[in-house]
Design a binder for these strands. Structure first.
Lengths: 268, 268
DNA sequence: GACCGGCGATTGTCCGTACATTAGTCTCGT
DNA sequence: ACGAGACTAATGTACGGACAATCGCCGGTC
């Protein structure tokens, strides 16, 4: 008992479950305890601590690493959390990314940027009804055509710096990162079909016979909701697409068939 | 040159890329050639063929296995394709699954089941315009309420057995598996917002002020399109939801807010 | 012909070792 | 004080061996 701990932690060598699985389970337990919040042990440390070979340790760690629970790389100390924090896009983000990559200039008309209270929205973000919220309302233009009506609420205590930002040309997520140090880690999106109100029809320049896609999005930071968004997209020009191979799903968004809803619809 | 081939296939031992990556790339090439359609080599065979250790082979195979490209298990010979063929659900499948799991009885009214030609649909399935297609049109009911109008096209050469099936209570995928031995392995779904035509309004019992979700789906079997589906869902009662954590996306579908589109919409 | 057992093939698990590569740190010299 | 370089620590890559568990097949027996 010279240095660390060398009592082999509870690994039953002749149980039905493989050693690496027991090790993985034990690490999971210790993870939720918060034992590793500031330092995750390296492979060799685990080898000594559990008395198994590095191969076994790596087999267990492989799961945690592909999961994104811990991160490893040559030379670096192991850390918690995924290596590259990818901004979750969802249908909404990929829609604007698609417009961007098509070479179309994007612009926004800011219709409101202030602090409000909204019980309904606050409730959906699991906040007190009276919580002050930063409210941003924009009409997003692709080229000259209105593309979407975008409304965002964020808790004022973290998003207050955004009040001074000019949102006509920048994306919210960029500003959120720059001014508030926030980077969303997850979220939830719900897509519905709705009819525009008269005011929305005017804002989006849509004919009265058009349907809209209503995307309601809640962005989360480590599970805590920090953004609620309600976006109306011209459903006649854009669509949400999901592509899957039985194992993975990829969301994207882009032009809906430009030739109208669908040729075969006229038949019934 | 006694048995198999023992010329070490082109693995540059001092290239920048790891050995297992080269091996993986080479296997991928040989896979698309169709070389392994009826037999994928075992680990030891690859060890001999490429002249690397089993560890390296396993590292390369690990990717193909987690991908689902090949399947391995103790005792069994390695095979192509994923171990358990999961029926890809997408928004559509999960919608009906959600209704089912809510304990609501599902029923369908079959409006058409025959063989047709449709150039537009055939083109989208990458088939000849004149290809005969099995056509199935149903109104799907959840309880007593119409839920969706569902139109499916399948190539007649593989789907002809379906002409004798009674589709009022069974799911298409079940029958496709039972009668045709087909199980979809991937697909693509596109969701748009549309307005119903008068006929569709009557079929679905929707008020003239409602918008619909138009889901267009192409189901694939090993990359080849074998199903084209066009479904109109009452958008006032159901929505598509995507939940993601930056790494994985989960699609689901269910009731849209029953209290109307969204409370905050009335404000603008 | 049907059932049962043995046997080989194949992958899963586990151990050991060695060296390469990289990031961060620490020291040393200027 | 500051920069360059050496050093350490950590993972990545790659090799080797051994045994266990399982499936499928073949054959023998009843």
């Amino acid at each position: 008992m010279t240095s660390t701990r060398q009592a082999p932690r509870l690994l039953t060598r002749s149980a039905g479950t493989p050693l690496w699985a027991q090790l993985l389970a034990d690490l999971r337990e210790r993870l939720v305890t918060g034992e590793f919040v500031d330092a995750f042990p390296g492979e060799l440390a685990l080898v000594q601590e559990y008395g198994v070979s590095r191969h076994t340790v790596r087999e267990a760690l492989r799961h945690l690493r592909t999961e994104g629970t811990v991160t490893a790389a040559r030379g670096r100390k192991p850390r918690l959390g995924p290596a590259e924090i990818e901004q979750p896009l969802g249908a909404l983000g990929s829609l604007f990314a698609a417009v961007e990559s098509a070479g179309i200039e994007q612009r926004s008309v800011v219709r409101a940027l202030d602090i409000r209270q909204d019980g309904t929205v606050a409730t959906r973000m699991l906040l007190e009804e009276s919580t002050p919220l930063v409210y941003l309302e924009r009409v997003r233009l692709a080229g000259d055509e209105p593309l979407a009506l975008d409304r965002v609420w964020l808790p004022a205590d973290i998003a207050r710096p955004l009040l001074d930002v000019d949102f006509t040309h920048t994306a919210l997520y960029t500003e959120l990162l720059v001014h508030c140090g926030l980077r969303l880690t997850g979220g939830r999106e719900q897509v519905r079909a709705v009819l525009p109100t008269r005011g929305e029809r005017a804002l989006l320049h849509v004919p009265p016979t058009a349907a809209l896609l209503a995307v309601e999005r809640t962005g989360c930071l480590h599970g805590r909701p920090v953004e609620h968004r309600h976006t109306l997209v011209r459903g006649d020009r854009f669509a949400v697409t999901a592509q899957y191979n039985g194992r993975e799903i990829a969301l994207s968004a882009g032009h809906a068939g430009a030739r109208g809803p669908a040729p075969e619809r006229s038949r019934s």
